[in-house]
Amino acid sequence: MSDAVAIGVDCGSTTTKAVAIDSGGRILYSVVERSHPRIEEQTERCLALLRERTGAAASVPIGATGYGRKRIAASRVLTEITCHARGAFFHTGKACTLVDMGGQDTKVIRVGPGGDVQDFAMNDKCAAGTGRFLEVILARLEVPLDEIAQRAAGEARPVSISSTCTVFAESEVISLVAQGEPVAGILAGLHRSLASRVASLAGSMAADADVRMSGGVAKNATMVEALGRALGRPIGVLPDPQLVGALGAALWVR
């Protein structure tokens, strides 16, 4: 008899995440893959893997979320906002403000004392406040993601990057490099600029709140620190930040 009581699938624009949980909400097994255009096939494969590893029966309910949510045969389909709130609440057990930074989207969610969504905001369709923005510019600087912390560490003089448009910022960065600015300063400036963008998205939602972070970008410690500075308070990163949405989806059908 398997311990798995629910499965959650978060079919995001960049990555697809799936988890199986037990009755206590503990993640038994998880899968993270780069998203494929053939959503149905990919989810079927992830689900099969989860079932194989956890022994979950075909009758175990599935909660689906993410951009591809409607293409998944699930017991319940909910948006990422509602699922992230539930996932975050599972970890914190109290009200908080969640900043979820993913590939295409950045969301700020005010989670109420019962795990409900009280308010939320998302970046506009421009990529300037998202993980994609970082990705584009890091590629330009030829800095791998896992080296950011090391490269930007201890940088006291962040270069000011004023452009809020990804394309403009990219050309601004090119010219800073051409002017001989050290990469460390540019990296620090880049994170600061992105953090201030997210802080303005959060607006009043971040005031007097316990701020937590989820999503793939939460694994970037430099970003977490920059955001903390922009919001004027330390930020706690949720466990398995990339899986919070999938966890929330599973909790909704538990």
């Binding site: 452009s163 448009c165 403009f168 050309s171 090119i174």
Partner: peptide
């Protein structure tokens, strides 16, 4: 608003 001006371009 200088943020809408790209000096490079």
């Amino acid at each position: 608003d200088q943020r809408a001006w790209s000096p490079e371009q």
